[in-house]
């Protein structure tokens, strides 16, 4: 098996796929509840339904990307974006 030629930075990809993909998918759930243009039921239930699809896509992407920094940047960006959205929604709710 030519792992070295097929994948670059294998260990970092494992870390991104196994840890960061899960964290990203979980953070996206509350974040998505802040911007989905549906009634409250759908805003909460739809992200729950999308979680397995999002995680699978991120997991596979972590390995398929040509460079290891690409999935890293994408997932960090998604985390930051959805984290900020959740934070703003929480502070607005408290304010």
């Amino acid at each position: 098996m030519n792992n070295k030629k097929t994948f670059t930075a294998t260990r970092r990809r494992h870390l991104i796929a196994c840890v960061l993909a899960l964290v990203t998918a979980v953070i996206m759930i509350p974040g998505m509840t802040t911007y989905l243009p549906f009634q409250m039921n759908e805003q909460i239930l739809l992200p729950i339904l999308l979680f397995p699809i999002i995680w699978t896509a991120l997991f596979i992407y972590a390995y398929l990307a040509q460079k290891v920094w690409q999935p890293f940047v994408v997932m960090i960006a998604l985390c930051v974006l959805h984290g900020l959205l959740s934070f703003w929604a929480l502070t607005q709710g408290q304010g």
Binding site: V26, I27, I29, P30, T33, T34, M40, Q43, I44, L45, P47, I48, F51, S86, A89, L90, G93
Partner: peptide
């Protein structure tokens, strides 16, 4: 995981 995450914003 899923329900607590979904409840994070709307239900703390």
């Amino acid at each position: 995981i899923l329900l607590p995450a979904a409840a994070f914003v709307s239900f703390g």
